[in-house]
């Protein structure tokens, strides 16, 4: 399998990337890690005329806490995140997901920005970002914009990014005392896209009351999906086993899976129910530590 012909352009800076994109027009595509885009090009499902390589742009690979945000540069690879001490200590949910994403060689190249910007509900990071209420920072022709994650995913492979926008940073509210998150997906074998996945992020107050809750679902809807009804049930409540069961049930009802090679719709709904409960418990356990 060989991609169709295209012209490669390397951008050394975000502004150069944006200028290139504007100059080359709609037939230009950004490439970061390339592990989503290039396979599609090899299968000739995608035939862009121009590829703008943004992976060599300096200064977009970092993980830091600043103010009340955790900031991750868009070009940070999944491997860099996997081995990062700060994330290991305070944001284990990210490690949960990365461990289950593709395989180590792909993670050496695949970036957090690419995983989100691809706009694919089968990718793992969108559910986490929904759960953690991330903000996507992008630079475009008209300057920098911050897009709340709830406004980011528009449709199948479609996002709020304009064609020339470069996703530069992910911002996640800093982990507070009493917060915890967890992610798991059921996969047919290691490295597979999710049959179904659930990300949970919870914040408890000193009395164990749920102050904030985020639940994101992977690959059970056309667009990465937040479980709003489930979150509403938990917010402001002391989370009991009964509530957890109820939220699992709600998750299975509200998700929108389709039957395919990974299993029937009913099976996927059931899996969503189970993982939602398990991840709620795991997130609570971490929050209470």
């Amino acid at each position: 399998m060989i991609p169709a012909n295209f012209n490669y352009h390397k951008a050394s800076s975000v502004s150069e990337a944006i200028a290139l994109s504007q100059e080359l027009g709609e037939e230009a595509k950004y490439m970061s890690g390339g592990h989503s885009l290039l396979p599609m090009m090899k299968l000739r499902f995608a035939t862009p005329e121009h590829i703008i390589d943004i992976s060599k742009i300096d200064g977009l690979s970092y993980i830091k806490e600043e103010g009340d945000m955790l900031k991750i540069g868009a070009l940070t690879t999944q491997t860099e995140m996997e081995h990062n001490a700060l994330l290991k200590e305070k944001y284990p949910i990210l490690g949960d997901a990365i461990w289950l994403t593709a395989d180590p060689s792909v993670r050496n190249v695949g970036t957090i920005g690419g995983n989100i910007a691809h706009g694919d509900a089968a990718n793992d990071q969108p559910a986490l970002m929904l759960a953690m209420r991330a903000t996507v920072v992008a630079e475009g022709a008209d300057g920098t914009k911050s897009i709340p994650i709830d406004d980011f995913f528009h449709g199948f492979y479609m996002t709020a990014l304009e064609p020339s926008d470069v996703l530069v940073e992910i911002q996640i509210p800093k982990a507070k005392k009493g917060s915890g998150g967890a992610y798991h997906k059921v996969e047919r074998k290691v490295g597979d896209y999710a049959t179904a996945g659930v990300a949970v992020y919870v914040e408890l107050d000193v009395d164990g009351v749920c102050q904030e809750i985020g639940i994101g679902l992977t690959n059970v809807s056309a667009v990465p999906m937040r479980l709003e009804r489930g979150e509403a049930l938990l917010r402001g409540q002391k989370i009991t086993d009964e509530l957890i069961s109820e939220v699992g049930q709600v998750a299975s009802e509200d998700c929108e899976p389709e039957s395919d090679l990974r299993g029937s719709e009913a099976y996927k709904r059931s899996i969503v129910n189970t993982i939602t409960k398990r991840m709620l418990n795991k997130a609570l356990e971490r929050a209470r530590q």
Partner: peptide, 12 residues
């Protein structure tokens, strides 16, 4: 770093 060279452009 290990990478899969079938999914990487030579020019990169």
């Amino acid at each position: 770093k290990s990478i899969k060279s079938c999914t990487y452009l030579a020019v990169r």
